[in-house]
Nucleic acid binder design. Structure first.
Lengths: 153, 153
DNA sequence: TAATACTTGACAAAATTAGTAAGGTATTTT
DNA sequence: AAAATACCTTACTAATTTTGTCAAGTATTA
Protein backbone atom coordinates (compact mmCIF):
# COMPACT_ATOMS: atom_id res chain seq x y z
CA UNK A 1 0.00 0.00 0.00
CA UNK A 2 0.92 3.63 -0.44
CA UNK A 3 3.26 2.99 -3.31
CA UNK A 4 5.26 5.61 -5.07
CA UNK A 5 5.25 5.47 -8.87
CA UNK A 6 8.47 4.82 -10.73
CA UNK A 7 8.35 8.38 -11.96
CA UNK A 8 8.79 9.68 -8.45
CA UNK A 9 11.45 7.15 -7.61
CA UNK A 10 13.44 7.75 -10.77
CA UNK A 11 13.04 11.47 -10.30
CA UNK A 12 14.67 11.43 -6.90
CA UNK A 13 17.46 9.20 -8.13
CA UNK A 14 18.03 11.46 -11.12
CA UNK A 15 18.18 14.49 -8.87
CA UNK A 16 20.72 12.69 -6.76
CA UNK A 17 22.94 12.20 -9.80
CA UNK A 18 22.58 15.82 -10.80
CA UNK A 19 23.38 16.88 -7.25
CA UNK A 20 26.65 14.98 -7.51
CA UNK A 21 27.70 17.44 -10.20
CA UNK A 22 26.94 20.46 -8.05
CA UNK A 23 27.89 23.25 -8.33
CA UNK A 24 29.25 23.39 -11.86
CA UNK A 25 29.53 20.04 -13.47
CA UNK A 26 26.64 19.44 -15.85
CA UNK A 27 25.39 15.87 -15.81
CA UNK A 28 23.99 14.48 -19.04
CA UNK A 29 20.84 12.44 -19.36
CA UNK A 30 22.91 9.65 -20.73
CA UNK A 31 25.05 9.54 -17.64
CA UNK A 32 22.02 9.48 -15.38
CA UNK A 33 20.50 6.80 -17.53
CA UNK A 34 23.53 4.57 -17.23
CA UNK A 35 24.11 5.09 -13.53
CA UNK A 36 20.52 4.68 -12.49
CA UNK A 37 19.45 2.20 -15.15
CA UNK A 38 16.53 4.20 -16.48
CA UNK A 39 15.89 4.81 -20.19
CA UNK A 40 16.91 8.14 -21.70
CA UNK A 41 13.45 8.72 -23.14
CA UNK A 42 11.74 8.27 -19.82
CA UNK A 43 14.26 10.48 -18.05
CA UNK A 44 13.66 13.26 -20.56
CA UNK A 45 10.03 13.30 -19.56
CA UNK A 46 10.89 13.42 -15.89
CA UNK A 47 13.66 16.00 -16.07
CA UNK A 48 11.51 18.22 -18.21
CA UNK A 49 9.00 18.56 -15.41
CA UNK A 50 11.67 19.18 -12.85
CA UNK A 51 13.25 21.83 -15.01
CA UNK A 52 9.99 23.63 -15.58
CA UNK A 53 9.49 23.58 -11.83
CA UNK A 54 12.79 25.36 -11.43
CA UNK A 55 14.53 22.62 -9.52
CA UNK A 56 17.19 22.14 -12.16
CA UNK A 57 18.47 24.04 -15.17
CA UNK A 58 19.97 22.75 -18.37
CA UNK A 59 22.96 23.60 -20.51
CA UNK A 60 22.68 22.74 -24.17
CA UNK A 61 25.29 21.67 -26.65
CA UNK A 62 28.42 19.57 -26.28
CA UNK A 63 29.62 19.51 -22.72
CA UNK A 64 26.15 20.40 -21.56
CA UNK A 65 23.77 18.63 -19.24
CA UNK A 66 21.74 19.34 -16.15
CA UNK A 67 22.63 21.38 -13.10
CA UNK A 68 21.01 21.80 -9.75
CA UNK A 69 19.30 25.19 -9.54
CA UNK A 70 19.85 25.42 -5.80
CA UNK A 71 22.18 24.05 -3.16
CA UNK A 72 21.64 20.35 -2.45
CA UNK A 73 20.69 21.26 1.08
CA UNK A 74 17.91 23.47 -0.25
CA UNK A 75 16.22 20.83 -2.36
CA UNK A 76 13.98 18.58 -0.33
CA UNK A 77 12.43 15.32 -1.44
CA UNK A 78 8.87 16.55 -1.05
CA UNK A 79 9.42 19.28 -3.62
CA UNK A 80 10.73 16.75 -6.14
CA UNK A 81 7.88 14.32 -5.64
CA UNK A 82 5.21 17.00 -5.75
CA UNK A 83 6.26 18.03 -9.23
CA UNK A 84 6.20 14.48 -10.51
CA UNK A 85 3.23 13.02 -8.70
CA UNK A 86 1.16 15.90 -7.44
CA UNK A 87 0.42 16.64 -3.80
CA UNK A 88 0.30 14.02 -1.10
CA UNK A 89 -3.33 12.94 -1.23
CA UNK A 90 -3.93 9.73 0.66
CA UNK A 91 -7.54 9.81 -0.45
CA UNK A 92 -8.85 11.53 -3.53
CA UNK A 93 -11.17 13.64 -1.41
CA UNK A 94 -8.06 15.27 0.00
CA UNK A 95 -6.79 16.24 -3.41
CA UNK A 96 -7.09 20.00 -3.74
CA UNK A 97 -8.45 19.51 -7.24
CA UNK A 98 -11.28 17.22 -6.25
CA UNK A 99 -12.53 18.14 -2.82
CA UNK A 100 -14.55 16.07 -0.38
CA UNK A 101 -18.28 15.71 -0.56
CA UNK A 102 -18.69 14.34 2.94
CA UNK A 103 -16.15 16.03 5.13
CA UNK A 104 -18.54 16.39 8.01
CA UNK A 105 -19.87 12.87 7.99
CA UNK A 106 -16.56 11.26 7.23
CA UNK A 107 -14.85 10.09 10.37
CA UNK A 108 -11.73 9.06 8.56
CA UNK A 109 -11.19 12.31 6.76
CA UNK A 110 -9.11 13.77 9.55
CA UNK A 111 -7.11 10.59 9.85
CA UNK A 112 -5.96 10.68 6.25
CA UNK A 113 -5.33 14.35 6.39
CA UNK A 114 -3.19 13.92 9.44
CA UNK A 115 -1.25 11.08 7.87
CA UNK A 116 -0.66 13.08 4.73
CA UNK A 117 0.60 16.03 6.73
CA UNK A 118 3.05 13.80 8.56
CA UNK A 119 4.38 12.26 5.38
CA UNK A 120 4.82 15.65 3.82
CA UNK A 121 6.54 17.06 6.87
CA UNK A 122 8.94 14.15 6.89
CA UNK A 123 9.79 14.42 3.22
CA UNK A 124 10.38 18.12 3.61
CA UNK A 125 13.09 17.51 6.16
CA UNK A 126 15.13 15.31 3.82
CA UNK A 127 17.27 17.03 1.22
CA UNK A 128 19.60 15.96 -1.55
CA UNK A 129 22.44 16.86 0.76
CA UNK A 130 21.30 14.09 3.07
CA UNK A 131 21.44 11.65 0.19
CA UNK A 132 24.88 12.82 -0.83
CA UNK A 133 26.14 12.28 2.68
CA UNK A 134 25.04 8.73 2.59
CA UNK A 135 26.99 7.47 5.54
CA UNK A 136 25.19 9.33 8.30
CA UNK A 137 21.95 7.87 7.08
CA UNK A 138 23.11 4.38 7.69
CA UNK A 139 23.53 5.13 11.35
CA UNK A 140 20.74 4.90 13.87
CA UNK A 141 18.16 3.81 11.39
CA UNK A 142 15.14 1.99 12.72
CA UNK A 143 15.59 3.51 16.13
CA UNK A 144 12.67 5.85 16.04
CA UNK A 145 9.54 3.79 15.80
CA UNK A 146 6.22 4.19 17.58
CA UNK A 147 6.61 7.69 18.75
CA UNK A 148 3.64 9.42 17.22
CA UNK A 149 0.25 10.37 18.51
CA UNK A 150 -2.69 11.05 16.30
CA UNK A 151 -3.92 14.58 16.71
CA UNK A 152 -1.78 15.23 19.75
CA UNK A 153 1.60 16.88 19.77
CA UNK B 1 1.00 10.71 -4.68
CA UNK B 2 0.90 7.93 -2.13
CA UNK B 3 -2.77 7.24 -2.58
CA UNK B 4 -4.69 4.66 -0.70
CA UNK B 5 -7.03 2.50 -2.77
CA UNK B 6 -10.76 2.61 -2.15
CA UNK B 7 -10.55 -0.89 -0.76
CA UNK B 8 -8.44 0.34 2.11
CA UNK B 9 -10.57 3.41 2.65
CA UNK B 10 -13.84 1.51 2.59
CA UNK B 11 -12.34 -1.15 4.81
CA UNK B 12 -11.54 1.32 7.55
CA UNK B 13 -14.94 2.93 7.26
CA UNK B 14 -16.63 -0.47 7.40
CA UNK B 15 -14.63 -1.39 10.47
CA UNK B 16 -15.74 1.84 12.04
CA UNK B 17 -19.38 0.91 11.50
CA UNK B 18 -18.82 -2.55 12.93
CA UNK B 19 -17.04 -1.03 15.90
CA UNK B 20 -20.14 1.01 16.62
CA UNK B 21 -21.95 -2.25 17.32
CA UNK B 22 -19.34 -3.42 19.77
CA UNK B 23 -19.54 -5.51 21.89
CA UNK B 24 -22.66 -7.44 20.95
CA UNK B 25 -24.67 -5.78 18.27
CA UNK B 26 -24.05 -7.44 14.91
CA UNK B 27 -23.95 -4.99 12.04
CA UNK B 28 -25.18 -6.21 8.67
CA UNK B 29 -23.47 -5.56 5.38
CA UNK B 30 -26.56 -3.78 4.24
CA UNK B 31 -26.35 -1.33 7.10
CA UNK B 32 -22.71 -0.63 6.41
CA UNK B 33 -23.52 -0.22 2.75
CA UNK B 34 -26.19 2.37 3.43
CA UNK B 35 -24.28 4.34 6.01
CA UNK B 36 -21.01 4.45 4.12
CA UNK B 37 -22.41 4.48 0.59
CA UNK B 38 -20.51 1.48 -0.66
CA UNK B 39 -22.10 -1.37 -2.63
CA UNK B 40 -22.98 -4.58 -0.81
CA UNK B 41 -21.09 -6.70 -3.31
CA UNK B 42 -17.89 -4.75 -2.89
CA UNK B 43 -18.19 -4.78 0.88
CA UNK B 44 -18.56 -8.55 0.84
CA UNK B 45 -15.18 -8.83 -0.77
CA UNK B 46 -13.60 -6.51 1.73
CA UNK B 47 -15.19 -7.95 4.86
CA UNK B 48 -14.29 -11.42 3.76
CA UNK B 49 -10.63 -10.58 3.90
CA UNK B 50 -10.96 -8.89 7.25
CA UNK B 51 -12.82 -11.87 8.66
CA UNK B 52 -10.22 -14.33 7.46
CA UNK B 53 -7.60 -12.13 9.08
CA UNK B 54 -9.43 -12.49 12.36
CA UNK B 55 -10.26 -8.83 12.78
CA UNK B 56 -13.99 -9.44 12.72
CA UNK B 57 -16.31 -12.44 13.03
CA UNK B 58 -19.69 -13.02 11.49
CA UNK B 59 -23.02 -14.28 12.72
CA UNK B 60 -25.21 -15.94 10.14
CA UNK B 61 -28.96 -16.01 9.78
CA UNK B 62 -31.61 -13.46 10.63
CA UNK B 63 -30.38 -10.98 13.17
CA UNK B 64 -26.84 -11.75 12.18
CA UNK B 65 -24.08 -9.54 10.89
CA UNK B 66 -20.51 -8.67 11.71
CA UNK B 67 -18.89 -8.19 15.08
CA UNK B 68 -15.53 -6.85 16.09
CA UNK B 69 -13.28 -9.69 17.20
CA UNK B 70 -11.39 -7.49 19.64
CA UNK B 71 -11.91 -4.32 21.61
CA UNK B 72 -11.97 -1.18 19.43
CA UNK B 73 -8.89 0.04 21.26
CA UNK B 74 -7.06 -3.11 20.20
CA UNK B 75 -7.69 -2.75 16.49
CA UNK B 76 -5.32 -0.32 14.84
CA UNK B 77 -5.61 1.14 11.37
CA UNK B 78 -2.36 -0.41 10.15
CA UNK B 79 -3.67 -3.91 10.77
CA UNK B 80 -6.80 -3.21 8.73
CA UNK B 81 -4.93 -1.71 5.81
CA UNK B 82 -2.32 -4.44 5.74
CA UNK B 83 -4.95 -7.08 5.17
CA UNK B 84 -6.56 -5.17 2.35
CA UNK B 85 -3.56 -3.65 0.62
CA UNK B 86 -0.52 -5.58 1.73
CA UNK B 87 2.38 -4.13 3.65
CA UNK B 88 3.48 -0.53 3.40
CA UNK B 89 5.89 -0.68 0.49
CA UNK B 90 6.70 2.76 -0.84
CA UNK B 91 8.77 1.14 -3.56
CA UNK B 92 8.29 -2.33 -4.91
CA UNK B 93 11.85 -3.22 -3.96
CA UNK B 94 10.74 -2.87 -0.36
CA UNK B 95 7.94 -5.34 -0.79
CA UNK B 96 8.86 -8.50 1.11
CA UNK B 97 7.64 -10.53 -1.84
CA UNK B 98 9.85 -8.89 -4.41
CA UNK B 99 13.10 -7.83 -2.82
CA UNK B 100 15.61 -5.28 -4.01
CA UNK B 101 18.29 -6.00 -6.57
CA UNK B 102 20.38 -2.95 -5.81
CA UNK B 103 20.19 -2.32 -2.10
CA UNK B 104 23.84 -1.42 -1.84
CA UNK B 105 23.97 0.92 -4.79
CA UNK B 106 20.61 2.48 -4.11
CA UNK B 107 20.94 5.68 -2.14
CA UNK B 108 17.23 6.12 -1.82
CA UNK B 109 16.52 2.67 -0.49
CA UNK B 110 16.99 3.76 3.10
CA UNK B 111 14.88 6.84 2.56
CA UNK B 112 11.85 4.88 1.43
CA UNK B 113 12.34 2.33 4.10
CA UNK B 114 12.47 5.00 6.72
CA UNK B 115 9.37 6.71 5.39
CA UNK B 116 7.50 3.42 5.30
CA UNK B 117 8.47 2.69 8.88
CA UNK B 118 7.19 6.07 9.98
CA UNK B 119 3.88 5.65 8.20
CA UNK B 120 3.42 2.24 9.69
CA UNK B 121 4.30 3.42 13.18
CA UNK B 122 1.80 6.23 12.90
CA UNK B 123 -1.02 4.01 11.66
CA UNK B 124 -0.33 1.55 14.44
CA UNK B 125 -0.99 4.19 17.05
CA UNK B 126 -4.47 4.96 15.75
CA UNK B 127 -7.25 2.56 16.71
CA UNK B 128 -10.96 2.25 16.04
CA UNK B 129 -11.49 3.61 19.52
CA UNK B 130 -9.93 6.85 18.36
CA UNK B 131 -12.36 7.01 15.48
CA UNK B 132 -15.31 6.31 17.75
CA UNK B 133 -14.27 9.14 20.01
CA UNK B 134 -14.35 11.53 17.16
CA UNK B 135 -14.38 14.75 19.09
CA UNK B 136 -10.90 14.61 20.57
CA UNK B 137 -9.53 14.20 17.08
CA UNK B 138 -10.92 17.48 15.98
CA UNK B 139 -8.87 19.28 18.56
CA UNK B 140 -5.29 20.34 18.04
CA UNK B 141 -5.05 19.04 14.56
CA UNK B 142 -2.44 20.49 12.29
CA UNK B 143 -0.30 21.52 15.21
CA UNK B 144 2.38 18.95 14.78
CA UNK B 145 4.14 19.64 11.53
CA UNK B 146 7.80 19.65 10.70
CA UNK B 147 9.11 17.81 13.66
CA UNK B 148 10.89 14.87 12.12
CA UNK B 149 14.46 14.08 11.32
CA UNK B 150 15.53 11.49 8.83
CA UNK B 151 17.55 8.77 10.50
CA UNK B 152 17.88 10.70 13.73
CA UNK B 153 15.61 10.48 16.73
C1' DT C 1 -38.97 -24.20 5.24
C1' DA C 2 -38.62 -19.69 4.09
C1' DA C 3 -36.18 -15.75 5.01
C1' DT C 4 -32.08 -13.64 6.18
C1' DA C 5 -27.34 -13.05 5.80
C1' DC C 6 -22.87 -14.38 4.98
C1' DT C 7 -19.35 -16.79 1.29
C1' DT C 8 -16.85 -17.48 -2.83
C1' DG C 9 -14.90 -17.11 -7.30
C1' DA C 10 -15.02 -15.38 -11.88
C1' DC C 11 -15.09 -11.67 -14.70
C1' DA C 12 -14.77 -6.99 -16.90
C1' DA C 13 -14.83 -1.95 -17.57
C1' DA C 14 -12.14 1.99 -16.39
C1' DA C 15 -8.23 4.30 -14.91
C1' DT C 16 -3.47 4.63 -14.19
C1' DT C 17 1.24 3.52 -14.91
C1' DA C 18 5.23 2.92 -17.34
C1' DG C 19 7.14 3.46 -20.66
C1' DT C 20 8.47 3.95 -26.31
C1' DA C 21 8.84 6.55 -30.57
C1' DA C 22 9.70 10.17 -33.54
C1' DG C 23 10.84 14.41 -34.68
C1' DG C 24 12.31 19.08 -33.31
C1' DT C 25 15.27 22.90 -31.23
C1' DA C 26 19.44 24.95 -29.30
C1' DT C 27 24.43 25.29 -28.65
C1' DT C 28 29.18 24.63 -29.37
C1' DT C 29 33.29 22.72 -31.39
C1' DT C 30 35.87 22.07 -35.50
C1' DA D 1 29.10 26.52 -41.94
C1' DA D 2 28.11 22.14 -40.51
C1' DA D 3 28.35 18.32 -37.70
C1' DA D 4 28.01 16.69 -33.28
C1' DT D 5 26.04 16.88 -28.92
C1' DA D 6 22.30 17.32 -25.97
C1' DC D 7 18.08 18.99 -24.57
C1' DC D 8 12.74 19.48 -25.74
C1' DT D 9 8.02 18.11 -26.85
C1' DT D 10 4.07 15.60 -28.08
C1' DA D 11 1.70 11.56 -29.12
C1' DC D 12 0.74 7.06 -28.43
C1' DT D 13 0.22 2.39 -26.47
C1' DA D 14 0.89 -1.95 -23.90
C1' DA D 15 0.56 -3.60 -19.38
C1' DT D 16 -1.07 -3.37 -14.93
C1' DT D 17 -3.99 -2.15 -11.27
C1' DT D 18 -8.16 -0.61 -9.52
C1' DT D 19 -12.83 -0.76 -8.84
C1' DG D 20 -16.12 -2.75 -8.97
C1' DT D 21 -20.38 -6.27 -10.72
C1' DC D 22 -22.51 -10.82 -11.15
C1' DA D 23 -24.04 -15.25 -10.16
C1' DA D 24 -24.43 -18.94 -7.53
C1' DG D 25 -23.65 -20.79 -3.56
C1' DT D 26 -23.75 -22.12 2.11
C1' DA D 27 -25.21 -21.55 6.87
C1' DT D 28 -28.49 -20.29 10.47
C1' DT D 29 -32.67 -19.23 12.71
C1' DA D 30 -37.55 -17.76 13.29
Amino acid sequence: MLKLSTKGQYGVRAMFEIARGYPENPVTIKEISERQEVSVAYLEQILNKLRRAGLIRSVKGPGGGYLLARKPGDVNIASILKELEGPVAITSCLDPEEGCARVEGCVTHLLWRSLGAKIEAFLETITLKDLLEKEPLLKNFDTDHKRYKFGAA
